[in-house]
Nucleic acid binder design. Structure first.
Length: 755
DNA sequence: TGCGCAGGTGTTTTT
DNA sequence: CACCTGCGCA
């Protein structure tokens, strides 16, 4: 028997040797799913399958990298290099780079990140003279994004009565038009946003039979990780890709589906079984990661969800420590407590920083820990937030590169045309913009024929000089490699100088960042192209891959032995001996956006499940009575999820009263124990009303006194009074019996106007 | 044209 | 609280 088969349990073994035909692996948390996937690929290669013909899609670059490394290690040769392993987005961008011209895009198409996309939307909203408060870029972007994830074009969006009604109700009836303008603008700019990478891949496969058969033939074996997080576009692409050989293996866990806000649907798991008539389903239920207490707690928590595939996650490990529940007075005290606890774990139990993770619901929660760790001299690294390539100084530079690789890229052009300042002001830019719009030409085309615009003097020569500089760079592109070109750009544009003269601490850091960027370009261009790579390593391919990198992806050495701080979403797929799950309070976790709808709440609960199952040995769950939010102190009840933990697996001794208690902090946990506290928390769910099917929350600003409304939990009622400032209105509503009169804070409750 | 300041405004989660 | 925007002034 092969070495890699020996260490597998029965079901893992079955999954590995089942190579032909559709296979679904339902893999509980910590059940060795990566091991199965990697062994399976190694096994395929061992059976003589050409490594070029294996495709594995993951959700993060990190997961892809890890898989590749493990397979390489298992095989002990370089065969693994030929495998096509990557995220949906990166693999599709590589394929689209080869196929772009079929779809009418330049081969060097730009990938717009969220900031670029929003900036395009802002420009369109402005051009259409719409109110940018009503038509906020982030809202529009989300609407467009979810449309695309469901494979809706702007035409279908505009034709869909339900969508139109929804937009009308939210007072944004023109989103469909913005969607149209946005799509056309991106296309004109030779740019795809993240969602376009999926949409265009789908279009490629469904509209171009040659392309379909090319990739169907190429990828004889297709594997999908984290299948529960695929959206409709991804589902259809996978189905198309696998249709010829039907050797599709999907791995997923419905209990860990936490990306519905990105269009992911657990339905895909159920649908998979219906799509093929001979699907083999294998469950992996033995957990190798965590102690029994942790697994038991996780099981009992997830059991509260209605919508799930029943599984029985179990472990052979000992019960281990109980889950430590910790209550602090404020968020800052919580930070101090965790820092103290870490110091103690290091001294007494010889744990290392790298074995410890702090997990929270939102990125903003990292602050208190940053401060307390700095004070306690604990090395830490925060994941999330800005990626390296989104920093201003990096993006500025990258936009020069983008202009050279793809001059149609208007966003990049606008960003650098007057940075560093060279006397091209907003008035000038607006003129060019309007002109380009009218003539239906690109910004760059307008710049190349300035005469009709009638600029003169300093403005004209500034523009001419800029155009000449970019053209010079473009010519250089064929003579020099990307690194040499980048050096020249740094020099000639004045960017390096601009940063060099700034001797402040931040300025120095920016300068160093720029050097790091240049190094990364050098490293990229000088790494020989691997056999299996579809595209060569030049400026264009460099630019395409960096947009898809997140800061989780590039860990350097000084980040090694640090405490890791990240959101629970970012922690998916990872494991740590010690986990501090912090900020476990109502309105934070569950988020106040997700409390009033069963499906949303269940997703929050799955997120809680993911958080618990990251811990191998010790799990701390912590909450604060008071927390600074938007500059002022707010009070939140402990999360309802805390009460869902089985009492006999929880150590309550640190939660009976808040740490750093003051006389003011009565109530909540004062002298009460968790059981009494449950009463308080359950209060949230006692309402009897179930929202009607038509329930659609309305914008609070539309509410008027006297209106009849529906509340998700309290049912129907009439608004008696409306008071308070616009951002914090309180409504007194007379609900139908047995609820009666209630005051409702409109920031928190969702109300639907009943016609 | 560019900078500084006051005021407003916002927090889920991410490729 | 922190960031961003817009406005006013030099």
């Amino acid at each position: 028997m092969q070495e890699y088969l020996k260490s597998l349990n029965e079901n893992q073994h079955k999954a590995v040797i089942h190579t032909e035909g559709p296979l679904m692996i339902v893999a509980g948390a910590g059940s060795g799913k990566t091991k199965v996937l990697t062994s399976r690929i190694a096994h395929l290669i061992h059976l003589g399958v050409d490594s070029f013909r294996i495709l594995a899609l993951t959700f993060t670059n990190k997961a892809a990298k890890e898989m590749k490394e493990r397979i390489e290690h298992m095989l002990g040769n370089s065969e693994a290099r030929n495998l096509f392993i990557g995220t949906f987005h990166s693999v599709f961008s590589r394929i689209l780079r080869v196929e772009a011209t079929r779809l009418g895009y330049p081969a060097n198409f730009t990938i717009y990140d969220t900031d670029d996309a929003k900036s395009v939307i802002k420009a369109i909203v402005k051009e259409k003279n719409l109110d940018d408060k009503t038509y906020k870029a982030s809202i529009i972007y989300n609407r467009i994004s979810s449309a695309k994830n469901n494979l809706y074009t702007y035409r279908e969006y505009q034709a869909d009565a339900e969508i139109q009604q929804e937009d009308a109700r939210s007072n944004r009836p023109l989103i469909g038009q913005i969607f149209e303008a946005y799509s056309k603008r991106c296309f004109k700019n030779g740019a795809m946003d993240f969602d376009d990478l999926l949409v265009n891949m789908y279009i490629l496969l469904s509209n171009f039979p040659e392309a379909l058969s090319k990739y169907q033939t190429k990828f004889r074996y297709v594997m999908i990780d984290e299948y529960q997080d695929t959206n409709l576009a991804q589902y259809h692409i996978v189905k198309l890709l696998g249709a010829m050989h039907e050797n599709i293996c999907v791995v997923g866990d419905d209990a860990q589906s936490i990306y519905s806000f990105r269009g992911a649907s657990m339905e895909n798991i159920f649908q998979f079984q219906k799509d093929y008539d001979d699907v083999t389903v294998i469950k992996l239920e033995q957990n190798y990661r965590s102690t029994r207490n942790i697994i038991e707690a996780a099981n009992q928590v997830i059991a509260k969800n209605e919508n799930q595939i029943k599984k029985n996650l179990w472990t052979e490990k000992e019960s281990g420590d109980k889950i430590k529940l910790v209550c602090s007075f404020t968020d800052n005290d919580e930070g101090k407590y965790v820092a103290d606890a870490i110091s103690e774990l290091k001294i007494r139990n010889h744990y290392q920083n790298q074995q410890i993770a702090i997990l929270y619901r939102t990125n903003a929660q990292s602050r208190a820990f940053e401060e307390s760790f700095r004070r306690a001299n604990i090395a830490y690294k925060i994941y999330g937030g800005l990626s390296f390539y989104q920093r201003k100084e990096i993006k500025d530079f990258v936009c020069y590169l983008r202009c050279v690789a793809n001059p149609q890229d208007e966003e990049a052009l606008k960003r650098i045309i007057n940075y560093p300042a060279r006397g091209i002001g907003t008035t000038t830019l607006n003129k060019i913009s309007v002109f380009a719009q009218e003539k239906n030409i690109t910004y760059w085309q307008a710049l190349n024929d300035l005469e009709p615009l009638g600029f003169k003097g300093a403005t004209l020569s500034a523009l001419q000089n800029f155009v000449m500089m970019i053209k010079h760079f473009q010519l250089l592109q064929d003579k020099k490699n990307a690194y040499e070109l980048a050096e020249e750009i740094g020099k000639l544009s004045g960017l390096v100088k601009e940063l060099y003269i700034d001797k402040t601490v931040e300025g120095l850091a920016r300068y160093e960042n720029l050097q790091e960027l240049l190094n990364s370009i050098k490293e990229y261009t000088e790494t020989p192209t691997e056999d299996g790579e579809l595209v060569e390593r030049n400026l264009g391919s460099y630019l395409q891959q960096i947009t898809l990198l997140t800061d989780t992806d590039n860990d350097n050495e000084e980040d090694q032995n640090t405490v890791k701080l990240m959101t629970i979403h970012a922690a998916k797929g990872l494991e740590f001996p010690i986990v501090f799950l912090v900020g476990m309070e109502e309105n934070i976790f569950p988020s106040q956006m997700s409390m009033y709808d069963r499906e949303d709440l269940e997703e929050e609960r799955r997120l809680f499940y993911v958080a618990i199952t990251r811990a191998k040995e010790k799990l701390y769950i912590s909450f604060a009575n008071n927390r600074y939010r938007f500059g002022s102190l707010v009070q939140n009840d402990p999360s309802r999820f805390i009460d869902e933990l089985p009492a006999d697996m929880v150590d309550n001794s640190l939660a009976s009263k808040p740490r750093f208690n003051t006389p003011k902090s009565k109530g909540l946990f004062g002298n009460e124990n968790a059981i009494q506290q449950k009463k308080v928390v359950n209060h949230h769910t006692t309402a009897t009303h179930t929202a009607t099917a038509q329930f659609k929350p309305d914008d609070p600003s539309k509410l008027q006194e006297g209106m009849r409304v529906e509340h998700q939990r309290f049912g129907f009622g009439k608004i008696i009074t409306l008071e308070g400032p616009a951002n914090n209105k309180i409504a007194t509503i007379n609900f139908e019996p047995p609820i009666g009169q209630k005051k409702i804070m409109l920031n928190y409750a969702k109300l639907s106007i009943v016609a």
